[in-house]
Design a protein around this nucleic acid. Structure first.
Length: 496
RNA sequence: GCGAAAGUAGCUCAGCUGGUAGAGCGCGACCUUGCCAAGGUCGAGGUCGCGGGUUCGAACCCCGUCUUUCGCUCCA
């Protein structure tokens, strides 16, 4: 049973065996109708953790006005009522049996209303919209279907009115708290991490004596019951977000929006994604909460796709939380305006930056995969390696005694012991040295330290560089400093 | 959910008109080996996705089912 994505279909050139080393969706338990979310393997989790750490530091360490939280995954339905997810994440769908096409029932009716409006019959159009809203509000799906048929709406493909039942597709996962299943115990798994920040906004602001502008960062899983979860790790039902909500004075949001847009692009370049494969995609159609939105897209082998969204969310979320919770979400701004008076109380505006951790992981993984041909003619050889930024690599260095004899393994272990408290190293003394180099190339280890007989004599070893395969001989006392800087997160953070 | 294609070892695949499972790579042990996937010997690993049918006999033919991929619907 093939449980692994045929990556060739996605034009991802990475070999299956290498995919295995980083990610898998295999499970010993795979019941019918259960789509196993793709998981990270032993190397994938290291790469992803490294990306998460660098993002976290880029937020909370490089900015003295950004702090982190770790909010709940289970959240009260009111939270999602306030955010618009209970209403907006619920789509009534209807299929045409002849064309096999699926439509949103409300959009079919809205389309019909538009036809009336264009014909000059505004009253009829409005009446239809009102009726649609009333039926959907009552969740009377059978009546919605009858209305579609009564209005003579046909499928634009097949031209028939041979419709299926109307069904609700709720994109949120729900479950119950406690053992008695009634409405009061219903809770949702968060479909985005942002709301966890909003409901904690005042607490963080007051306890941290935060002054606007300031931000709250969070990394965590979110869950969406996607109809299709496809394209490798690109769209999943269980995914991880790295979000930062930046609270600003109303009216100043566009400046911050532009600043964060540029800062976030710099981040993606700093972790190694090339500028020519990154672009902004400005949203023409804005979500219900936003007054400006842009995606940072990366050119995956299957096309440009979003890896991060930067949204100016206005005061939509905080205002709704205030209304539903009856708790004031306002901030008192002591700064003086042009007239010399404090700005006073207001609900802050929010600029959001939201990275899909798994999408960034996939982008970095795809980008790192490198295939090179060395030599010419019959001498030509293909070399494959993962050109990860050293700070992102699962292992920072591999210690490889040139042979298994003459005390070289002991010397190698000595070096391993010296380095392993500083960064993650790999030790191996079996097989030919060339084979071991190649194995490390495949998982992106930037440095290989070869221990030879000269090491025993003068305590020097060679460092072999992954990208060039060139070697240099250094004293083992210098290894920590020499490799340490190269693999440090500092080198990435400096560029943001 | 609809449509199309596919499922044989960890990976890539072969397996003829039906006759009881193969290769390369990888993996493990040992020998040899001083630098970019070296060589040798031995070894582990598969109820051919699952269930049923046809047949003396099914990886192969038929039916069903599950899973995966692609396309569509959705995508805050």
């Amino acid at each position: 049973m093939r449980r692994f994505t045929k990556l060739s279909n996605l034009r991802i050139p990475i070999t299956q065996s290498l995919i295995h080393k980083f990610t898998n969706n295999e499970s010993i338990h795979l019941p019918p109708r259960h789509h196993q979310p793709r998981q990270r393997g032993q190397n994938g989790v290291e790469l992803k953790n490294n990306l998460k750490n660098i993002w976290w530091k880029a937020m909370t360490q490089l900015n003295d006005n950004i702090v982190g939280v770790d909010a709940a995954i289970f959240m009260h339905p009111l939270t999602w009522k306030a955010s618009g997810h209970v209403d907006g994440f619920n789509d009534p769908m209807i299929d045409n049996k002849d064309s096999k096409k699926r439509y949103r029932a409300d959009q079919l009716l809205e389309g019909k209303a538009e036809v009336y409006a264009n014909a000059g019959d505004e009253a009829k159009a409005q009446a239809l919209l009102n009726e649609t809203g009333r039926l959907l509000g009552n969740n009377d799906l059978e009546a919605v279907r009858e209305l579609i048929i009564a209005e003579g709406i046909v499928c634009p493909i097949s031209g028939t009115a041979n419709w299926t039942e109307v069904r609700q597709f709720n994109l949120m996962f729900s479950t119950q708290v406690g053992s008695v299943a009634d409405d009061a115990s219903l809770i949702y798994l968060r479909p985005e991490t942002a709301q966890g920040i909003f409901v904690n906004f005042l607490n963080v602001q007051k306890t941290g004596r935060m002054k606007i502008p300031f931000g709250i960062a969070q990394i965590g899983k979110a869950f969406r019951n996607e109809i299709v979860a496809r394209q490798f790790t690109f769209r999943m039902r269980e995914f991880e977000q790295m979000e930062m909500q930046f609270f600003v004075r109303p009216g100043s949001e566009m400046g911050w929006y532009e600043q964060w847009r540029d800062t976030r692009l710099a981040f993606h370049k700093a972790v190694g994604l090339p500028a020519e494969k990154l672009k902004f995609h400005i949203h023409e159609k804005l979500a219900h909460y936003a007054n400006a939105a842009v995606d940072i897209e990366y050119q995956f082998p299957f096309g440009f796709r979003e890896i991060e969204g930067i949204h100016s969310r206005t005061d939509f979320d905080l205002k709704n939380h205030q209304e539903l919770s009856k708790k004031k979400q306002q901030y008192f701004d002591n700064d003086l305006d042009d007239n010399g008076k404090p700005y006073g109380n207001y609900i802050p505006y929010v600029v959001e930056t939201s990275v899909g951790a798994d999408r960034l992981f996939l982008a970095v993984f795809c980008n790192a995969f490198t295939k090179e041909t060395t030599g010419e003619g019959p001498e030509a050889k293909e070399r494959v390696y993962l050109k990860l930024h050293p700070a992102l690599a699962p292992y920072k260095a591999a210690i490889l005694p040139i042979t298994k004899k003459d005390g070289l393994p002991e010397k190698g272990r000595e070096i391993e012991k010296m380095l392993k408290s500083e960064f993650r190293v790999f030790y191996e003394d079996k097989d030919g040295i060339g084979k071991r180099y190649t194995r490390q190339d495949l998982i992106g280890t930037p440095f290989c330290i070869a221990v030879d007989h000269q090491t025993l004599e003068d305590n020097t070893a060679t460092i072999r560089h992954r990208d060039t395969t060139e070697q240099e001989r250094v004293h083992i006392s210098e290894l920590k400093a020499k490799i340490g800087y190269e693999v440090s997160e500092q080198r990435i953070l400096e560029k943001i």
